[in-house]
Design a protein around this nucleic acid. Structure first.
Length: 467
RNA sequence: GGAGUCGUACCCAAGUGGCCUAAGGGGACGGUCUGCAAAACCGUUUUUUCAUCGGUUCGAAUCCGAUCGACUCCUCCA
């Protein structure tokens, strides 16, 4: 399979460190608020990546962190911890805030049918590992203490910024940001903050440098290496993480272990944007999954919507576009339901079906070209040369990557229809037989007002709940 | 100020030198079917057209340049 590697800026053949196994680390959420649908796009992308790897025969160890501490609202030491800020605003404890939004996040991802990572690790449970990492950096001469904080000195390594292809001289010259006077180099970053910066900081731990809390890049390095080793296959995140977060992770991880490369493949998801540009928690409408649900969409409509664009392209969100995805998914589900009613999935595929199967999985295995794969799916559905039982079998197999829960779509049945409705339907059939169309239309209108639609097919009337 | 991405038919969105007279979905419209609808199925919207202008090439949506427009990053952010 092929994957685009941000480090090389090329699509590369994927070769794992160990045969048939993949270690994959994904930057998780900072749990000070709900995730918006832009955040969630990245987790859908990572889920598709994981499922595609699994489909290609790899056993995937998928690790994701929960950032429940130390994520500052600003750079340097002038920002405020987001959790503490939220705590102050709401009157709840930081621990309650973290627990609440962690659960909300897990619910969101579950409803999007995102597979649960193999390991979910919280930053606050790994302070010791972070301190150890700082210690080894200190032993290696990569740190200095200034203004009460422990900094990583990027001038102690010779390839800082390689992931983002940063030109350090130009950055300095064009720097727009206020430079922290405590830093020797403007791009140096804090490994450990000591206390005394903010009053009433709740989340603090003792360390060799005093009571305080970790810098926010530290957790991903410490936890990924704890669960995946000093060298692992894939590290994922949003593209915004490239220039600062991932750049700093690489710097501190490779400096700490002395091993390069730390990670073989860097995979980044592009942004979801709207008319005004990037979705953000601070400006514009704060679109969460539950807002979409309130508007009458199902979470999987949004998942389908994500699949219609390539993960490395910006995707434009609008309710109109989401409606398209909803309609498409509805008709896919209808197709599956009617196939399930008529046939059982074939145990083997042949001829044309096998060709579609290859086309689909080739598209997915080629840097996750989901839109192409969907096109293959639809062409296959419309192809009369593919028998229905093979269509169903292939759809279900495709869904192992798409994750649209096609396996849970129920075969078309009349079971859950109330007696009252059934009685009206047969009364209408009787009226139609007697050509009493006035009466039959009355009944149809009444059924519609009750929330049921009637469709007259060659096989007789079909009743369905109006959604 | 610096770095980079993108602009595809009504909408979303693939395609990144010849198999493109541009996938797929959505919408709209027309047809079949129907007492009428709905659903389903078929067709049209899509023959030089891929922001505009110019260039390279036997050949460009795809490469190069300019222009216009949109966006992202360099600052917490998926």
């Amino acid at each position: 399979m092929k994957l685009y590697n941000t480090m090389s800026r090329k699509v590369e053949d994927f070769k794992p460190i160990e045969d048939h196994k993949v270690g994959m680390y994904c930057c998780g959420p900072t749990v000070y608020n709900f995730a918006h649908i832009g955040n969630l796009r990245t987790y859908v992308f990572e889920d598709i990546l994981r499922r595609t790897l699994e489909k290609n025969g790899y056993k995937v160890r998928h690790v994701m962190n929960i950032t429940d501490v130390g994520h500052l609202t600003g750079d340097g030491d002038d920002g405020e911890d987001k959790l503490e800020k939220r705590s102050r605003e709401t009157g709840k404890s930081v621990w309650d805030i973290a627990a609440f939004y962690t659960e909300a996040f897990m619910n969101d991802t579950a409803s999007l049918n995102i597979k649960r990572p193999t390991v979910i690790c919280k930053a606050t449970d790994h302070i010791k590992e972070m301190i150890d990492l700082v210690k080894s950096l200190e032993d290696g001469g990569h740190t200095y203490i200034s203004g009460g904080n422990v900094y990583f000195s990027i001038d102690t390594i010779d390839d800082y910024g390689k992931l983002a292809k940063l030109n350090l001289d130009e950055l300095k010259a064009g720097a727009r940001i206020s430079v922290d006077d405590n830093k020797r180099n403007p791009k140096d970053f804090v490994l450990w903050f000591t206390n005394g910066k903010f009053k009433d900081q709740v989340m603090v731990w003792s360390s060799p440098w005093g009571v305080g809390y970790p810098g926010w890049h530290l957790e991903c390095s410490a936890m990924s290496m704890k669960y995946l080793g000093k060298h692992f296959d894939i590290h994922c995140g949003g593209i915004d993480a490239i220039p600062v977060h991932h750049t700093n992770e690489i710097a501190q991880s490779e400096a700490a272990t002395g091993e390069k490369p730390w990670v073989d493949y860097w995979c980044h998801g592009e942004f979801l944007i709207n008319d005004k540009g990037k979705m953000s928690k601070s400006s514009g409408e704060f679109l969460t999954l539950s807002v979409l649900v309130d508007h009458g969409y199902e979470p999987l409509d949004y998942r389908y919507f994500c699949l219609t664009g390539h993960y490395r392209s910006q995707l434009k969100f609008s309710y109109e576009a989401l409606d398209h995805a909803k309609s498409a998914r509805q008709s896919l589900n209808d197709k599956v339901a009617s196939l399930k009613k008529d046939v059982s999935p074939a145990s083997t595929l042949s001829g044309k079906a096998e060709e579609y199967r290859h086309a689909f999985f080739d598209a997915m295995s080629n840097d996750l070209h989901a839109p192409q794969a969907l096109a293959v799916l639809w062409s296959m559905l419309k192809d009369d040369e593919v028998p229905d039982d093979q269509k169903l079998a292939l759809l279900l197999e495709m869904d192992s990557i798409l994750g649209l829960s096609l396996d849970k779509v129920e075969a078309k049945k009349d079971e859950s229809i109330p007696q009252e409705v059934l009685a009206l339907v047969s009364e209408r059939a009787e009226a139609k037989k007697n050509k009493d169309f006035k009466r039959s239309d009355e009944i149809r209108d009444r059924l519609i007002s009750m929330g049921w639609s009637v469709k007259d097919t060659p096989q007789g009337p079909v009743v369905a709940k109006i959604l």
